[in-house]
Amino acid sequence: MLKQTTDHTAPGPPAPSENRGAAVTVEDAVRTFTRAGETVHALGPVSLDVRPGEFVALLGPSGCGKSTLLNLVGGLLPPTSGSIRVGEEEVDGVPERVGMMFQQAVLLAWRTVQQNVLLPVEVSEGRRGARKAADRAAELLELVGLTGFADKMPNELSGGMQQRAAICRMLIQEPDVLLLDEPFGALDEFTREHMNVELARICSITGRTALFVTHSISEAVFLADRVVVMSARPGRIAGTLDIDLPKPRDPEIMTSATFQDHVRDARDLLRTGYEAAATADKEA
């Protein structure tokens, strides 16, 4: 990881063809929670294979366990049973090669934008390491269009700009796998669409594996190579859709017939999953 960072001090973003993602393998993962003595079956068993460099959207209604699945892959939660691998390594605690982003930008209010972006480096390599990575931070800020905002405080930025800074923070250590938990869910629709285009661009430039949690059908279809539709109680995979739209994608593509077909397929899968969950509820 460290070596990679130093190797990568060449100016400009990495070459587009470069495929630096890692595979993610989920095998029969189950997660239950115990609250007030009652056991809630939140997820699984779920199995999922994500190819290196693939962009997979996890689509499902609230409470279907998609965020739980993401937290399992990110090592923030251990699975109750089953196994998860990132690359060749079994996930036990947060893996080194993973970058995460959440619904909120979660920028620390007492740090400038640049200091926020460099926070992961500071945590793993100390202040000196962070100083060395300053150029890299500037490059990333340029990549997301935040040049000139490095020394601003987070509260001087709009919500969309804060999320851009969060993207930089996620990318600063050049992770192989990006875990995105509804990263633009708190933004207005216009900004959100714009940010999705940005994200797609960044992912295609950097060629990283991405797991993207969302409950927006069109967002999932627009971004992903593959949409994994989940159903609730307990969270399971209801079906998988391969999105064979060419990349890079322009928002215009949303009006195309193929796009609309994919959206319809995803909706059908969601509905069957929802009905199955409802009947399961009735029987219980």
């Binding site: 990110g74 923030l76 605690g93 947060v94 993973v98 995460m100 979660v106 620390l108 945590v123």
Partner: peptide, 26 residues
């Protein structure tokens, strides 16, 4: 301490001490 900020620090594999003085204390 904010739940999301705590999660962020965990996701960065921050040590307990780092979580204390870089986040909680601030």
């Amino acid at each position: 301490v904010d739940e999301n900020e705590d999660k962020l620090f965990k996701s960065m594999r921050a040590s307990r001490w780092q979580r204390f003085y870089k986040l909680k204390l601030m």
